[in-house]
Nucleic acid binder design. Structure first.
Length: 419
RNA sequence: GUAGAUGUAGCUCAAUGGUAAGAGCGCUGGACUGUGGCUCCAGAGGUUGCGGGUUCGAGCCCCGUCAUCUACCCCA
């Protein structure tokens, strides 16, 4: 019999790590709550069509990375590869336009993409994100960015960089694309094979190609700022104005274009050099056309998604893994010798737990010495010792593990002394 | 989908094609009959990822496969 292992590209998060995960999740919840975002939980699977229409038929995600299957009712179902389309679907489905606008929500949960695993890339990974729907103010774009930054700042994370760009809207982007195509088609022989393909489908992607010659060529291309329409241009200025007012530092980066079709106007990424080739901690932008694409009316929206595993990695690297330990699993260990004393220990443990003190006992019939050793390794603060003498005298010995001080305590006073 | 590297004990790693695959850490027990940390001793723990092949003989060489890591691609 061969062992069953976790599927490729998945991980177990166990003993050392949950502490970091919990801290991260609590920070996300707290920061979001303070900014007026409430939690939304959407299904982990959706109709495949949601992502085909929302994320875009020609994107890599939809084209080759989705976990799609037919359920027993012959419906095409897909494990969600991202969080924005489901949230917009929920907004439309529950007619949240009838609520006071904007509707601001956050989520934390697993996403699935069938990719080759590598550093910072899994087939199941966890994202936290926010979506703010129903307002097109540039101040909201800035708020979303500031929420993401606040999460990292509250965690004490350093060394991340915010990159910002605008990719225009359905009015002005086509003009830019067209001129890129015109300019680049004169140099097709200098482009890499991938970019030659991109030229037809989405010339914007040539801008963020890592190939040296392509990148060199991309530098000579006019920035999109020259092509933005009046509306997009003003919006972008508004965003930068707000970010400056918030004292947030960012870099303008015309090469960030994002790989999902729904983005309009503002796009941004937060990157960190400690992550390897997949250097984005998180990213997002505005998606004013998405609701319409999903059959709703024109509802503007802006949001981000960020990777929990990547943040955990950076945090652990920075803090040497020390934060991983959940300090002292329990406060009190009850060491007992003899059957009668073990029953007493069992009762006492339950009593302490009910009073809010964590407590544990031995389940391996170990010697007192071994029980002490175990208690020490668990990092408990106090050990209660119960043996025949104690039972006779109706007391227990309480030992302080840090100082080594011991005292006899009457059974009826035990709970009070230990809580 | 492509490329390179790597798979030996729970972990980190040894072992020229040649005996019965070892060490450190960790785990369990003992020295210390009812008291942790230090020290010493002992024990448990392996289908050398899996399947073929070459060879008198394979952990080591060859082929395949699976997995991990890294990179391309793309993204969180």
């Amino acid at each position: 019999m061969t062992h069953i292992r976790a599927p490729r590209g998945t991980i177990d998060v166990f003993p050392e790590k949950p502490g970091v995960w919990q801290r991260l999740e609590e920070t996300v919840r707290s920061v979001c709550r303070n900014a007026g975002y409430t939690e939304i939980r959407t299904p982990i699977f959706e109709h495949t069509e949601l992502f085909q229409r929302g994320v875009g038929e020609s994107t890599d995600i939809v084209e080759k990375e989705m976990y799609t299957f037919l359920d027993k009712g012959e419906r095409s179902i897909t494990l969600r590869p991202e969080g924005t389309a489901p949230v917009v679907r929920a907004y439309l489905e529950h007619k949240m336009w009838a609520l006071p606008q904007p509707v601001k929500v956050y989520y934390i949960g697993p996403m699935f993409r069938y990719e080759r695993p590598q550093m910072g890339r899994l087939r199941q990974h966890t994202q936290f994100g926010v979506e703010a729907l129903g307002a097109s103010s540039p101040a909201l774009d800035a708020e979303v960015i500031s929420v993401l930054i606040s999460v990292y700042q509250r965690l004490g994370l350093e060394g991340f960089v915010v990159r910002l760009n605008s990719i225009g809207c359905s009015k002005c982007r086509p003009r830019y694309k067209e001129s890129l195509m015109n300019l680049l088609s004169k140099h097709t022989d200098e482009l890499c094979a991938d970019c030659r393909r991109r030229l037809e489908r989405n010339p914007l992607r040539v801008l963020d190609c890592k190939n040296e010659r392509c990148a060199g060529l991309a530098k000579k291309l006019p920035p999109i700022f020259d092509y933005l329409c009046e509306d997009c241009s003003r919006h972008f200025e508004g965003v930068t104005e707000c970010l400056t007012a918030l004292d947030l530092i960012y870099e303008l980066d015309p090469t960030i274009v994002r790989g999902l079709d729904y983005y309009t106007k503002t796009v941004f990424e937060v990157i960190h050099s400690g992550l390897g080739a997949q250097d984005a901690l998180g990213g997002g932008g505005r998606y004013d056309g998405l609701a319409e694409e999903l059959g709703g009316s024109a509802i503007p929206g802006v949001g981000f998604a960020a990777g929990i595993e990547r943040a955990v990695q950076v945090l652990q690297d920075a803090e040497g893994g020390a934060i991983g330990q959940e300090a002292g699993r329990v406060n009190v260990f009850i060491a007992a010798m003899g059957d009668e004393a073990k029953l007493q220990a069992l009762r006492l443990a339950r009593l302490l737990r009910e009073q809010g003190t964590s407590a544990d006992i031995d389940y391996l019939d170990r010697s007192l010495r071994a029980q002490m050793k175990y208690a020490d390794k668990q990092g408990v603060k106090k050990v209660v010792i119960i043996g025949e003498d104690e039972l006779k005298g109706d007391y227990a010995v309480v030992r302080d593990m840090a100082t080594g001080d011991q005292a006899q305590v009457q059974f009826r006073d035990l709970v009070q002394v230990l809580t």
